[in-house]
Design a protein around this nucleic acid. Structure first.
Lengths: 354, 354
DNA sequence: CTGTTAGCGCTTTCAC
DNA sequence: GTGAAAGCGCTAACAG
């Protein structure tokens, strides 16, 4: 009875194994893999047989170390993967970087600044070629050229503060102003704003757009109609419920993002004074709710693509100084209403009915 | 993986630089980083000053090579990141692997088998510690122990075919059977099935659950009510529209996934014979549509967690043979209806119950 | 045409 | 307590 060695931790074959089997040196194997024209076809053939015999897979970790590259990956730091914005972003980035033989290392900061700092350091020690980040907060020192040792960083959705870097932003201001203007055009004057924390850039910009539309129409902002909070469906629902129970409730509101809009929808679906809704971020089935709705959309996948392109330009620039660039992704506004077109009748009763 | 050469020769300091600055050897730097007790506190202090002076970041690529580890990452191969199932999966996996100091390398196969084969080979050459995959098709040879050289693989949502591997599945059969049973309990006998291609496992299982519920109720399957197609909203919409225009249209249908359900909703919202809807996969706002709806849900984040746990056990088992395991994630059924409870009156007029 | 040498940045081993 | 040497798997540079 022969003691068949338990194949414990069968090591992945290296170039040495292939070379030994083919009776050549490792360099010949390496050159065969790169299809170096100087190697004889017969030799190549022998090597290829050994390669497939052993099912050789090149160790890119070792290769990258030798050729002075990093991990051959770009880091993507997102806040909340459950938000479709981030999955679309990842999609767009992956699409572009893949064409350069790079992959995406995805990490999830969960909205925690300290965690983000740790994760960025971690990506750095893994020697990613660059980082795309939607940063938390407005302390971006850990993303500066010093700590990053020149590893390129592209900001998405928020501009860098205190440091200089490329960024790709959404046209938060214009989108919000446009949508708010449409509420006003429908005759609303008492419009609430269910906002994000004003410390986050998009929150501030969207509020600015809201305020600009109001000012253009010579409407004054009612402070009791302006609320801020973390992006959270339940919190938004409570906020909107409290708005609706005011002595003089607003007749319309602008929800500063997807999550707030969903919360507003839930609150508005309860019995209560009717309210017209507008908000930032498209969401599936918006058109199927049978409710009058104004939605600001943008192409998050394209935002990812653009961010990846900026990043790769910088990676390839090889230390040459490019000026910091800022790309603004456009928004558009969609309006949905009930199928019968009984918009005002059904949902804006203050305008034509009651 | 051969692509455009990227050369980014950034001047990240190495241990040699730190050692030189501190006037010690690289070993002392290494030991200081690991807080080796044999190094004097004064020496450590000197090294630490140099470390922070240069903002040293360890090169984990080199470290992993030396200590015989891979990339310190797990590969995640998904079909369609735009599907929330995959983002939730990524979330659960990230949550677990991060506790072991690993990151997630995310790649996107876009439903293309050949692409998937390439991407898996690529992850392998990057020496990921393991792979979680929701594979396309039923040819899983590229994921067998031979090509993978023993790199652990965990299948999600579909079981391995032709090879043995761990997998985490959704209880497609039970969920579908339960939901279909509820349609039957409401008096429906003419029930359509808007299915996935029967070649995908979850498609087959969901159909099996549907058929089992019908058989239990001694109802016969009407072939004209059973349709299959790619998971695509517009295709599903067309399919359901054609079902509704049959001489004798079904009074209810089961949509085999999220995408098909959305398509069915769109078709059913047109003028046409009313139809009761049931389907697989939760979706946001299901409860807000004001439509009678039966939805099969499951916890995709937890599915990711479980997959990651199986994978890590195998990674840590270090070659010891574990038997292939199969975890089934449970489903539950939620029923939604219009707020007024006028369920049948509004949407199932053919029924006289209640 | 093919092989040898050296070294990417780190850590294991052994010497002092 | 600290350092020198060797090598993880690969490839650039130079031999032959």
């Amino acid at each position: 009875m022969t003691a068949t060695p338990l194949r414990a931790k069968r090591a992945v074959p290296t170039m040495r194994d292939v070379a030994a089997l083919a009776g050549v040196s490792t360099m010949t194997v390496s050159r065969t893999l790169h299809d170096d024209p100087r190697i004889t076809d017969e030799t190549k053939q022998r090597v290829r047989v050994a390669l497939s015999e052993l099912r050789y897979v090149r160790n890119d970790t070792a290769r990258n170390l030798r050729i002075g590259r990093g991990a051959g990956a770009v880091g993507l730091v997102v806040g909340n993967l459950a938000n479709p914005f981030y999955s679309q972003l990842a999609l767009g980035i992956g699409e572009v970087v893949e064409q350069y033989g790079l992959t995406v290392m995805l990490v999830h900061a969960s909205g925690d600044h300290n965690r983000e700092v740790r994760l960025v350091a971690d990506l750095l020690s893994r020697r990613v070629e660059g980082i795309v980040i939607a940063p938390e907060g407005d302390d971006h020192r850990h993303l500066g050229p010093g700590p990053m040792h020149g590893t390129p960083v592209v900001f998405v959705a928020r501009p860098p503060s205190g440091i200089s870097a490329d960024c790709v932003l959404v046209d938060d201001f214009a989108g919000t102003k446009d949508a708010t203007g449409r509420l006003i055009a429908r005759g609303h004057t008492n419009i609430a704003f269910v906002g994000l924390p004003p410390t986050v850039w998009s929150g501030a910009e969207r509020f600015r757009g809201f305020a600009a539309a109001m000012a253009d129409a010579q409407l004054r902002l009612n402070k009791r109609y302006v609320r801020y909070q973390q992006s959270d469906v339940m919190a938004a629902e409570r906020t909107v419920r409290s708005l609706l129970s005011l002595a003089k409730p607003p007749t319309a509101l602008f929800a500063a993002n997807n999550r707030n809009m969903i919360g507003a929808l839930r609150a508005a679906s309860d019995a209560g004074p009717p309210i017209a809704l507008a908000g930032f971020d498209a969401f599936e089935l918006a058109d199927m709710l049978g409710l009058p709705l104004i939605v600001v959309s943008y192409d998050a996948v394209d935002l990812g693509r653009q961010a990846a392109r900026l990043l790769l330009e910088r990676v390839n620039a090889d230390g040459a100084k490019l000026p910091a660039r800022r790309v603004i992704v456009p928004t558009w506004v969609a309006e949905y209403g009930p199928p019968g077109g009984q918009y005002h009748l059904l949902h804006l009763p203050r305008l034509s009915r009651d």
